[in-house]
């Protein structure tokens, strides 16, 4: 390959890609603790507002749409996820014990009596995905 072609087609795009990767990685590394604290604070506020007594202990980091938290003073885990229903996005939380049994469902989004909520059968669809996600993280057996 000619030197100029190599520079034009391989080296320069690679350098630009690496620069962006470093920028993204660095900002992620520096800001991730602040971001997680912000999520935890907001979710704790919502739990309290909606009348739930759960206290978030620490986040179990993992990929995907699920945000997973260990609950304090128990082996329970709270998984928060968005549910799309009739053009609205509802934020739900599922509480699971250490054996992988669902013990509670929390609606975290703001709602009033006028709003149509997603049917229970729609939430069942998420349960298998949550269990699969937690097994992958090693949070349950």
């Amino acid at each position: 390959m000619e030197h100029r072609t190599l520079r034009r087609d391989v080296v320069l795009p690679l350098v630009i890609g690496v620069v962006f990767l470093i920028l993204g990685g660095l900002s992620w590394y520096l800001l991730a603790p602040l971001k997680n604290a912000s999520f935890k604070e907001a979710l704790q506020y919502l739990l309290k507002e909606r009348g739930y007594t759960y206290t978030l202990e620490k986040e179990i980091p993992g990929p995907g749409i699920f945000k997973t938290y260990q609950l304090s003073k128990s082996s329970h885990i709270l998984v928060v996820f968005p549910v799309l229903y009739q053009g609205r996005i509802y934020l739900y939380g599922k509480v699971i014990n250490g054996e992988g049994t669902f013990v509670d469902t929390c609606l975290l989004s703001y709602h009033d009596t006028a709003m149509a909520l997603p049917p229970t059968r729609l939430l069942y669809v998420y349960e298998n995905r949550i269990l699969h996600h937690l097994r992958r993280l090693g949070a349950i057996q």
Binding site: L23, G24, S27, L31, E41, A42, K67, S109
Partner: peptide
Amino acid sequence: ILVPAFVQYVFLLALSFISPILYLET
């Protein structure tokens, strides 16, 4: 490809600080 993706990443990062719940929803 990289510039819009990076700008979007910065916007989402800012949104996750300003309103974490809206970030999760959107």
